[in-house]
Design a protein around this nucleic acid. Structure first.
Lengths: 125, 125
DNA sequence: AATATATGTTAGCATAAGCTAACTTTTTTG
DNA sequence: CAAAAAAGTTAGCTTATGCTAACATATATT
């Protein structure tokens, strides 16, 4: 059975990567605070990610990205950065650009994303 | 109470506008065939759109966009066209561009959409 | 006219993803 | 050390949006 990865899972993995970079370590409560979700919502989401091998959680509750989870997190993170920078280059406010990047970073096909990335690369703002 | 309009509702309204342009008239079954949804799914969705004043349905089952519904349909349709053309101008395959436009046309803020529209207008492919 | 097909509806189910309430467990602090 | 605070979990609810099964109604064909 092929495990499908959902938008919310992608977002959680991206958030874990982001918080790891910023704070050095991540636990459920940090994700809840960062995203504005309740503790139970994050708890259940982490349980799913753990059961599917995307993350591991040590005895102290510290969350680590497993290789498969890290790969997804990096992919979404790259998309986020590229899309945000591209919108900013078109004159969109940085905060709005970041929000919109969050909303579309999951949906774009690889083909479209790569076309945008190439465009941004060739037309630096 | 402010009625919130959901992505699926926006998509249905856009589909109704599209089919009206293409075929002259629309009924539930046309939408089901066009979108690949079951008849009951469309039936329930049309009931909601009707109850919220977005569409009307005559005795023969022909669907008409009411002013509020038409406004939303046009908005999403314009977004679709602009986003699709923009992706095509970046070298994305037309079919993929249309699919991706469908996925992101609901999420973009007005600010980002207008920035893209301006860019496309000033840089015709 | 009778049967077959097409269309529409209702009821009930599934799933993703959030929530609160209530609980346990762990950590901190006075 | 005892009490309080913080963190995590479980159970059960909600909502959007799709589905199938079963039925009703309308249209078309023999």
């Amino acid at each position: 059975m092929v495990m499908e990865i959902y938008k919310s899972a992608e977002d959680y993995l991206e958030t874990i990567l982001d918080l790891t970079k910023r704070n050095g370590s991540v636990r459920s409560i940090d994700i809840a605070n960062e995203r504005g979700f309740s503790k139970p919502s994050v708890s259940v989401a982490m349980k799913n990610l753990r059961q599917n091998g995307y993350i591991s959680v040590d005895a102290d509750g510290l969350i680590t990205l497993e290789p498969q989870g890290l790969a997804i997190a990096k992919k979404i993170y790259e998309r986020h950065v590229v899309l945000r920078n591209w919108l900013i280059s078109l004159g969109v406010d940085a905060k709005v650009a970041a929000e919109d990047a969050c909303l579309i970073e999951h949906d774009l096909s690889a083909e479209s994303f790569e076309a945008i990335r190439d465009f941004v690369t060739k037309n630096p703002s």
